[in-house]
Design a protein around this nucleic acid. Structure first.
Lengths: 238, 238
DNA sequence: CAGTGGTCTAGACCACTTC
DNA sequence: AAGTGGTCTAGACCACTGT
């Protein structure tokens, strides 16, 4: 934990505890620097974090205003995506179960070769999981990963969190992801496992996730019941 | 234009010109600092920009690898959203027309009062526009904005870019936006103006956009023909 | 005008990777 | 051990805001 991260956490707590009130200004950066006994650049970095997370907004020559709008809660996507759906749901005290529909190894088809930068001879896992939240079918997840990058994948890991396994057990560093979100019609799989009607729309999140070394390690298509879940994000900048 | 922005632009150009090749490492930060005649922190900030934009990925103790994956092109969303759809389409050399379906002033209903933080007595614009790209109906956009914040809105502005008017003519600073993306069924409006079938799914992007002073200035629902357009984003971090 | 945040410097120390 | 990027400092100058 760096200094600017801890300071950001403290200020965030003060906002949530109403020590700093919504609509008012934060103390100026010099004062905060004195209080925390750090240089102003460190305060600046802390405030940048809070800006990206939507807690404050700075204006040169004026100050840093506290926003903390109730609309955006912890459900917003980018922040939580890499901790996986399991983590996200636990945070909201919701029970998540993962039912493994299929779990196979095969050679990748052409589109997957391109997306995951593989040769036709590099085997991949092909996983289909149904994510069930509070006993309702929620998301049907088709996941494809290169075997050489994610070795020794087991049923037990799939039932828990793949992301936890990748980051903590394998020690791989995630750089980010490319996503494409679309509305589609329900296909046979959706009808069967998500228990939806043939005429129901489905929200599909297609994702390619990358490691810091540049290698893509996951291609996934998450098919969401349209009436159960949307994709939410907070997009703030300096 | 700051130093780190110009340096980021130069390095980006070198990547696109293959002076720095995909898969190799960037020169180290000290060398780049010498070359550009700036301190290393400035180089670091430049590289942070390139990281967020998906061009490179750094690993402590190793170096900064050049990614530049062909998958993500200029169509990715967060970067372009605030320049408006007009700008985005112009960049891709596509012709966009905006047909004004309706343009009224009214008192806001309850949901809008909450979203835009208004009293029942503060009037809002209610705008419905059909965005037509290359002669095909693309998006049906329902936009609601407070009159006091965005005065003197005219048909001419609506046919061009609202975002240009807000940022350049009114001089307002945009902080960011909250979005919720869902799949829904086509309603009567969609069928009529997007020319879709009653059973077609529709991709709806619901957005509340905020100014730096904390005030929300826009609530919009963009209804996209499911077969014409998805929502794409690149989500990279340090 | 005084006060604010944004940028920038020239160094420093440290965590980490690779050999 | 050598080299890398991440953090941090103590200052400085500047652009911008309010009155």
């Amino acid at each position: 934990m760096t200094k600017y991260e801890s300071i950001a956490a403290v200020i965030k707590q003060r906002i949530q505890d109403n020590v700093y009130q919504t609509g008012t200004l934060l103390p100026n950066q010099s004062d905060l620097a004195s209080e925390f006994g750090v240089s102003r650049m460190t305060i600046n970095k802390a405030i940048n974090i809070l800006t990206m997370e939507g807690f404050v907004s700075s204006q040169r020559g004026f100050g840093t205003k506290i926003l903390n709008h109730p609309l955006w809660n912890k459900d917003v996507s980018p922040v939580n995506e890499y901790r996986g759906l399991s983590f996200q749901m636990a945070e909201q005290h919701r029970q998540i179960k993962s039912q493994i529909i299929s779990f196979e190894v095969a050679f990748p088809e052409k589109k997957i070769q391109e997306r995951l930068m593989l040769t036709p001879q590099q085997p991949v896992y092909q996983i289909v999981r149904l994510r069930i939240v509070d006993d309702d079918p929620f998301i049907l997840e088709h996941t494809i990963m290169p075997v050489d990058l994610i070795p020794n994948l087991t049923d037990d890991i799939l039932k828990e969190s793949i992301y936890h396994y990748i980051q903590f057990d394998l020690g791989l560093q995630i750089a980010g992801a490319y996503r494409n979100i679309q509305a589609t019609r329900a296909d046979e799989f959706d009808i069967k496992y998500l228990q939806c009607q043939p005429t129901d729309p489905v929200l599909e999140v297609e994702q390619v996730a990358y490691l810091k070394n540049g290698r893509p390690f996951e291609y996934s298509r998450s098919r969401n019941r349209f009436d159960k879940r949307g994709y939410t994000e907070l997009d703030m900048r300096n």
